[in-house]
Design a protein around this nucleic acid. Structure first.
Length: 361
DNA sequence: TAGGCCATCTGGTCCT
DNA sequence: AGGACCAGATGGCCTA
């Protein structure tokens, strides 16, 4: 099953790596405005516009040239740079910038700029494709580049954990893995994509961890060797509304646990990242209420991955983590981003159905 | 208004 | 020489 999953995903990954993903309408939407009004035809214009303005200022007096041969001859004999009182410079003699040479340099620079632009567009296109295959995708609330990479890293890590452990992880660990190192807005978005109220299920878990199956989680069997730099940051101020994956999830002093199969720290793990990430901004975006109702709380205890199978019918936008038949949208909608255009990428990634089945009991 | 994110230009370095 | 890649600088846009 999982082998089929990866056999399905692998070509896409390869296409991603090659940057050869066929753009669809969604990617068109995700183009930046600059890219949008910068069609292929206009690229040259803008390129000329942008670089020429600068080049023109640099090359004052750069009139249309000229006789290259003549210039070359001049350059060959151009040893007059050190003709003054100044000490001779070492190294290759700097050729005199003749108008012809300046023109060639300008053209070369313009071509280099165009190539660089194309290269960056390709890179952005690949990033757009990556945005579509990570577990959260929104046309309007596009993940930033860095957040996309972080989420992708976490996603790969989570899938690897599933393969290593051969069983489905608990929802808490899964979401925590996905959100590790992500900014608060992105955490909200991911939680929203998974239709989770992150604050609720985490705080409740803190209140009564025994009601979750976290201790038996494949992710929680070992001490977490890769403290999240954000959550461990001194800048972090755990608030009532914030998502505190450390203390809220497992209680004070309990580190979230996402070990590899073994017990020894694996610093090659994607969870290990140099502590360069900015601190999480716990601005209460996850929660507007000090405490939720028991109804809301109880809902979280019955969360399962089963809802992810709604990916088969994305138009319904049903909430995936509720008890069968439960409607959860209104109760939690204030804590999660607007989802009319937010969905898991699995809506369009059939292989994830296998994963859903895997999560299913 | 500050900060985050982004696109673009640019010069340097390495490789072919 | 030219292309690919990279990182720094810069300015624009957006949001809190």
């Amino acid at each position: 099953m999982l082998s089929r999953l990866f056999s399905d995903v692998l070509p896409d990954v390869q296409r991603l790596a090659a940057g050869g993903w066929v753009e669809d309408s969604a990617s068109e939407d995700s183009k930046t405005k600059d890219e949008c009004h910068l069609g292929e035809d206009e690229m040259d214009d803008s390129e000329t516009r942008a670089s020429s303005s600068r080049a023109d200022s640099e090359m004052a007096g750069d009139d249309d040239d000229d006789d290259d041969d003549l210039d070359e001859e001049e350059e060959e004999g151009g040893g007059d740079e050190n003709s003054g009182d100044k000490p001779k410079k070492r190294g290759p003699k700097k050729r005199q910038m003749t108008p012809a040479r300046a023109e060639r340099s300008k053209v070369r620079r313009q071509k280099a700029n165009a190539r660089e632009r194309t290269r960056m567009h390709d890179l952005n296109s690949a990033l757009d494709n990556l945005r579509k295959v990570v577990p959260c995708y929104s046309k309007t609330q596009k993940l930033s580049k860095i957040e996309t990479l972080r989420l992708a890293k976490n996603y790969i890590w989570a899938l690897g954990e599933i393969l290593r452990n051969g069983k489905r992880p608990d929802v808490v660990s899964y979401v925590q893995t996905l959100c590790k190192g992500l900014s608060q807005p992105t955490t909200n978005l991911v939680a929203g994509c998974l239709q989770l109220n992150t604050r609720n299920f985490l705080t409740e878990q803190c209140t009564d961890p025994s009601r979750f199956h976290v201790p038996s989680s494949p992710f929680s069997a070992h001490p977490y060797p890769y403290p999240c730099s954000r959550l461990a940051s001194p800048h972090y101020q755990g608030g009532s509304g914030g998502l505190n994956l450390r203390s809220h999830a497992y209680g004070p002093g309990y580190e979230a646990v996402y070990p590899p199969g073994g017990g020894s720290p694996d610093y090659s793990s994607p969870d290990y990242e140099a502590p360069h990430s900015p601190p999480v901004c716990h601005n209460g975006a996850l929660s507007n209420r000090p405490q939720d109702s028991d109804t809301d709380r109880n809902y979280h205890y019955s969360m399962h991955y089963s809802g992810l199978t709604t990916a088969r019918a994305p138009a319904t936008h049903s909430l995936p983590f509720g008890p069968p038949g439960a409607r959860l949208g209104g109760a939690h909608s204030e804590n999660i981003p607007p989802f009319h255009d937010v969905h898991t990428h699995h809506d369009r990634a059939p292989p994830y159905e296998d994963l859903n089945a895997f999560f299913h009991n």
